[in-house]
Structure formats: structure tokens, C-alpha cells
Nucleic acid binder design. Structure first.
Lengths: 347, 347
DNA sequence: TTGAAAGCGCTAACAT
DNA sequence: ATGTTAGCGCTTTCAA
């Protein structure tokens, strides 16, 4: 052995009787190498148990660093999903994936400085960062490729990965209507997140399409937090004419609605159906388990990496232009939705 | 500007009128540099907005790569917490933190090969990896420093970070007893996880200390999953003499117990108190919100990094010896525990 | 206290 | 199809 040290490309070259360049070519499955030479090199690689040194490769200019930006407000579960999705895709493309915290209190210039100094050749921006306009503009000015995950509004010229929020909300609304619900209430998310608006629109559109009037009392505002869901649900269940279903903009608020219903002895789903959005782990662990819309975060993160790879080109090169990955959502039906009370009587 | 390129150590040296070595010393706050020289260099660094290139630094032999190993069975929430805790600590110590998946199906040799080839100078092993004996032995043989997070049994000579599971369970049990409970049931976790056993022991010890007999019917087995909690709770609530409290080995199983109670119209906490362990996000989002023991995963991950740093020494150097970081747990009281029914009548 | 030289392990650009 | 020559940006000797 080489003194306890790992074999280098030079060791392989020596053993195979070729130059290091040839080994490099074989290792990168690049360029033309004669089958005979390739075989020799591969044999040497196998015998030495050689694996290229990622650091050296990166220094020499091969690899690139891309970052997964996140806000501290991101839940660890979401972050974990992003990571699990992004990692292998990044590795496959010889990207180094680094995770960078990025707070809103910090001035954009400072964030940009960090990004530049970290030698990042691209960034993935999950919500809510993907809606920080100043940052997006600064990135564009500096020519740092970025891909947005589930942004509120689609910035022209930027790659985006998302599901169709409006369509998903529409589908869920239709599902409730088909169950027989007529009085369906809606808990909005933070008004600054436009994804909330798009979900609201999907809901409105479908209600209208089915000829169902929506009282404005039935649309209450939340901010995606469990707490806000508590308040929203109370307002809803204080109404003179109770809704038979509540569709919340995310799972936390839906869980809150279920909690309030419990407290008021309103049975879910017998008397009240409650649906959420996101399919967080919470959805399966509350009682009754939540019917919700699943966003494939992990797949979206993977797709974001792929898009980012496309957007990263030679330094100063022009951007790849817009790209959009629309991923499939799924309505996960559990136990929080049912035929409304009136229908049950009739049946 | 240097043609759009980032300033290198050489640019700084030139501008400060010193050698690159001096700049390197200043950048690393190392060795002796005269205050005057240091000032000059720092000025140049500031003016150029210089930041050392981590990749180059790593290649030249400065930095080290440490890995956070994980199993695919790890929830993304847990992984996220590990990451959030470990990252800054790793960065502060000039460690590159990489995240590596590590399945149980794979032979140990293969895992070791990956670890060696990835040039890892240390690994953090969260559960359940920290209880894979063969891997631990292989790591020791190869001299790869590793620190265990919340392992089932304490391997001599290995750094460990954990909370006192037994004491925490004991505290929670005492809390229930002080509320007035006498018939306290226990849902165990996977029997292969000894942390489950330690929690059970803590429970048993405290029950005994208070002179309370524990029927073996009151101790049922789960495997940490929500599903298993469902079954365990059903067995418990099928008993002739119902417990007034259920203490589950983790939050998922506690949530399951609450679900079953709901289904049987048993009011929680009025008729049945339910407590969990871990304080996952789930705990705060179910109804009633779960009283549970909080493990400071993030802090534990941070502590693990610190221990790992201590364990990593010059190549072939002797290990630092054993180290143990015992972190503080906390009993988070929410709404799932209360005085038992009988006491209420008396009061 | 500071500097000069020699790489770390690899790849890009040019030979051949 | 394969080899040669230069570095990438930093740190580590060793000298001054």
C-alpha cells in the first residue's frame, strides 16, 4: 500500500502504464479512449480501489457548488424533504449541494455577498424565499442562476417548479361538492403568499362553476399557522349558518379547525368535513386523519436541481431561458371528509 | 476588478505588500503576525472583499469532511433537525458537513469503503445507526472517529451525546403519579432500541418507588410507529380494568392512543391522560395537544459535532478517549394530561 | 516575524 | 487516441 494513503490518479496511471490524463478520461467516461487502454485503466482502478478526490476535482474546475437556500421559518420536515430530494440529483450531476440559511432581516446585499463568496453557481429557492423580489432581482443582476420552488407568482425568465395550486384546490372543492356539500368554507393562508390566492381562486372558480354562491363570511383569513387556524375556525363556527365543510389552505390550519370542532363537540367528519393542503406528517397522525392535497416536495426538489443544472452554463453565458416543471399533486383521502349531515338523513 | 473573478489570496498579498503566507496566517488567525502587518492585511482583505476559497483550502490539507450518516427510515423532520444543529457547528470548525445515506441492507464493508473513499475524517451517527454494532466495530478498526447520538447502549471508548432517557421517563411517571394516577400503562417502543428499555426502566423504577404495583398487562409492545400505537392502545383499552393514564414511548404512539380513545368516546384528558416522548411537531398539532418529553435534537446534533471535533486528531493519532454529553430534556406540558376521574369526584 | 518554494489531486488546453 | 504542460487557491515545509 501507499503508506495508508488513498491511491491517487497518479498511482492508477503508473499501474496501468498510461498517463494521468488517460485515467482522468476513463474516470469521466469522456472523450475517446481505446477499448484496450480503457480496460487496462479500469483494471488498475479496480485493483487499487481508486476513487477520485472530489475536492481536487472541484478545485481544478470540474464541479460546481449549488445551494439550497432556506429561511429559519422553514420547518425541519420541509427542509429534510428538500434535502432528500436534492441530494442525489446534485450528486449525479457532480454538484456539491450546500445548505445555506438566508434570513429576511439581512439586507439583500449581504446575502448576495455571501452567495458570491461561497462560489455558488446556482441556488434553489423554496418558499418563502422564492417570493423575495429584491433577492431575485439581485441574483438576476449578478447572473446567478436560480430556480424557484412553488413561488407565488411566476417571474418571467426564471425556471420554476410547482404544482398547479389552483387546479388542486379546484379538484378538492369539486370532491367536496360531489360528496354533497353546498356550504363550504375556506381558510386562506398568508395574504402575502400568492399560492394562497391561487388556491382560493381554484375554490371560487369551482364553486361558481357548480352554481354555488359563496358568502364572504365563509372565507376567512389565516397565515398558515396552527394558531391562526384556531381563530379562523372559531370565526367560522360562530356563524349563524354553519358550513358543512371547511377547506383550509394548509394542514396546520385544517388540524386547528378539527381541534376547534372537537372542543365544540362537533363531530368530524359526521357533522363537519375538514380538508387540508400539503400532506405533512401531521395529516396522518391526527384524528380523524386528514384528507388533503399532497405536494411532492421531494420530487419538486429533485426537479429543481435538474432545472438548475440546465440553467447553469459557462460563466457569463446567457441563461437557458424559462423552464417550468409542473409536478403532479395528489388528493390523499383519509377520514376527515364525508357526506354532509343533510344527505345522510335523506340516504 | 480582476476580470469578474473573485479575489484570491495572491490579490490580497499584492495589495497589502506582503507574501501570501502572511495573508494565510492572518486569515487563519494563526501564528505570530505583527500588529502592523496584520492591520495592513486586514485592510486589504476588507477592501477586496476577500473570502478564502473553501475548496482550495480543503485540497491543501486544511479542512476536513465529516458526515452525518442517516438511514432512509429517518423521518425528514428528524433529519432536518440534525442538519440544522450540525451545520453551523461544523462550519465554525472548518468542517465540511456532508450528508450520507447508509442503508442496513448494504454490507458493512461496502459502507466502510464509501466512508473511506469519501475522505471522511469523522461521522455522526444518529439512531438507529448508532446501534449497528458491526458498523461501529468497523469504524473503530479503521480508526474513523464516530460519535453516537442517543444510542441504546453506551459503547466504551466512544463519544456519546444523549439525554437521560430513564430519568426523563421517571420524571414523566412521577408527574402522572403526582396528578393522582395509579393505573398508568406504558407503550414500549421497538424492543431492539434499548432507549425504549431505558424509558421502561425509568417508568418501572418510579412506579415501584411510589409503591405502585404494575400489572404486566399494562405494559404493551409497540415499534414506535403510529400503527403499532393504534394496536397497543386497543389492547390497553380492551382491558377489564382500564388505566387512567397511558405513557407512550414516543409521540406517534401517543397520538395513536388518543385516536383510539376518541374512537371509543373516551375523553382525553378527562377520562384518560396520554403522554408521549420526543416532542415532534405532531405533539402540538393534535387535539388535545400532547404532554411529552422534549429531546433537544438540534442541540444534540450540535454537541455531536463538537465531540467529533475533539475526537478527530492527526492521522493515526490516538483517539481522545470517551466523552459523554448529557443534554437536558424538558417535560412539555400541554393538554393531554389531567387529574384522573376518581380524584375529580373527590375534589 | 516573514517569505519562497513545493505541492495537495485533478482537469483544461494544447500538443502529438 | 494519448501524452505534456500548466495551473486551480491554498497551506505546508523550510529558510531567512
Amino acid at each position: 500500500m501507499n503508506g495508508g494513503k488513498l491511491p491517487t490518479i497518479r498511482d492508477v496511471a503508473a499501474r496501468a502504464g498510461v498517463s494521468v490524463m488517460t485515467v482522468s478520461r476513463v474516470a469521466n467516461k469522456q472523450s475517446w479512449v481505446s477499448p484496450a487502454t480503457r480496460a487496462k485503466v479500469e483494471k488498475a482502478i479496480a485493483e487499487l480501489n481508486y476513487a477520485p478526490n472530489a475536492t481536487a476535482r472541484a478545485l481544478a474546475g470540474g464541479d460546481r457548488r449549488v445551494a439550497l437556500l432556506y429561511r429559519s421559518s422553514t420547518t425541519s420536515a420541509y427542509l429534510g424533504e428538500l434535502l432528500l430530494g436534492g441530494m442525489d440529483e446534485a450528486a449525479r450531476r457532480h454538484f456539491h449541494l450546500v445548505v445555506e440559511q438566508c434570513e429576511s432581516g439581512v439586507p439583500v446585499e449581504e446575502v448576495m455577498a455571501r452567495i458570491v463568496q461561497a462560489r455558488l453557481s446556482g441556488v434553489v429557492m423554496p418558499p418563502p424565499l422564492c417570493d423575495w423580489d429584491e433577492l431575485i432581482e439581485a441574483l438576476a443582476r449578478q447572473g446567478v442562476p436560480a430556480v424557484m420552488m412553488a413561488p407565488d407568482r411566476v417571474h418571467t425568465g426564471l425556471p420554476v417548479v410547482a404544482i398547479d395550486d389552483g387546479q388542486a384546490a379546484s379538484d378538492m372543492t369539486r370532491h367536496l361538492i360531489e360528496l354533497g356539500h353546498r356550504r363550504i368554507a375556506f381558510i386562506r393562508g398568508n395574504p402575502r403568499h400568492r399560492s394562497s390566492d391561487r388556491r382560493l381562486e381554484g375554490y371560487r372558480r369551482t364553486m361558481a362553476a357548480q352554481g354555488l354562491e359563496v358568502s364572504e363570511d365563509y372565507i376567512v383569513e389565516g397565515d398558515f399557522s396552527y394558531r391562526s387556524g384556531l381563530e379562523a375556525a372559531e370565526r367560522l363556527l360562530d356563524l349563524a349558518v354553519l358550513p358543512t365543510a371547511i377547506f383550509a389552505c394548509n394542514d396546520d390550519m385544517a388540524a386547528a379547525a378539527i381541534t376547534i370542532a372537537h372542543q365544540r363537540q362537533i363531530s368530524v367528519p359526521a357533522e363537519l368535513s375538514v380538508c387540508g393542503f400539503d400532506d405533512t406528517p401531521l395529516a396522518g397522525a391526527i384524528w380523524p386523519a386528514l384528507t388533503t392535497v399532497r405536494q411532492p416536495i421531494r420530487d419538486m426538489s429533485r426537479a429543481a436541481m435538474t432545472l438548475l443544472a440546465g440553467a447553469i452554463r459557462g460563466p457569463g453565458g446567457e441563461s437557458e431561458g424559462q423552464a417550468l416543471a409542473r409536478l403532479d399533486y395528489q388528493i390523499i383521502r383519509r377520514q376527515s371528509d364525508a357526506v354532509p349531515p343533510l344527505h345522510q338523513e335523506r340516504g
